[in-house]
Computed example of a mutant assay.
Amino acid sequence: MNAFAALSDDTRREIVRLVAKNGELTSTEISHRFKMSPPAISQHLKILKEAKVLKMKKDAQKRIYSINDSGLHEVEDWLLDIRNLWNARLDNLEKYLLKMKREKSREKK
C-alpha cells in the first residue's frame, strides 16, 4: 500500500496528525484517543507502517510510533509537482492578462 492509500482514511490521517504533533506515541496512547477497539487501531497502525508513513520501534512490550519521513516524501513530491504545475498555469494566465491589458490600453489611444 502506498502513502496515498494509507492516508485516504480519516482515522489514519488523525493518527498521523497525533503522532506528528507529539513526536512519539505508544500504540496504547494512540488507541486511548479514539472510540475504537485497540485491535482496530492496531490495524490502522499496521497499514500506516506498511505504507512507510509511520515507523515503529519496540521497547520491551511497548510499540512506539513516530513519523517516517521516507514515506511522506512520496506525498511531498506529488504536492510539489502539483504546485509547480499550478504555478506555471498561473504564470501563463498572468502573461495573458497583461497582454490583454496592454491591447486594451492601445485601443483607448
Rank of each mutant, 00 (worst) to 15 (best):
E29A: 15
I64G: 06
F4T: 14
N22C: 11
L97S: 02
N92I: 01
E74S: 09
H32W: 01
L72D: 02
R13M: 07
S27L: 02
S70E: 15
K109A: 06
A5I: 09
T11K: 07
S8T: 01
E103C: 01
F4E: 12
N22P: 02
L25R: 00
V19G: 00
V53D: 11
L45D: 08
E50T: 08
L93P: 00
N2R: 08
D10L: 13
S70Q: 11
L48S: 05
W86N: 08
L54V: 04
L98M: 10
I15N: 01
R102C: 01
L98Q: 09
D59R: 06
M100A: 15
K108T: 14
E94N: 12
L79A: 13
M36R: 13
D81R: 10
T28E: 03
N2G: 11
E29C: 05
Q61K: 14
H73M: 15
R13C: 08
A6F: 06
V16C: 05
S66R: 06
L80Y: 06
D59H: 06
G23R: 09
S31G: 04
K49Q: 04
S37N: 03
P38I: 01
L45F: 08
S66E: 07
N84R: 13
W78Y: 13
Q43N: 12
D59G: 00
D9V: 14
K49E: 10
S42N: 08
A20H: 12
D9E: 12
M1G: 09
L97A: 04
T26I: 05
I41S: 05
L98S: 11
K46N: 06
E74A: 13
E74I: 14
K21W: 08
V75D: 05
H44P: 05
I67V: 15
L18Y: 10
D10N: 08
G71E: 02
T26G: 04
N84F: 03
L80K: 11
R13I: 00
V16N: 02
H32G: 01
L72A: 08
R102H: 08
D81P: 00
S66I: 02
S37W: 00
V75Q: 05
K95G: 09
H73L: 15
M1K: 11
K99M: 14
L7V: 07
K49M: 05
A3F: 03
K104Q: 11
L80A: 11
H73I: 15
K49R: 03
L45G: 06
V16E: 03
E50F: 01
I47E: 14
I47R: 13
N22V: 12
S105P: 02
V16K: 04
A6N: 05
L97E: 03
E107N: 10
K57Q: 12
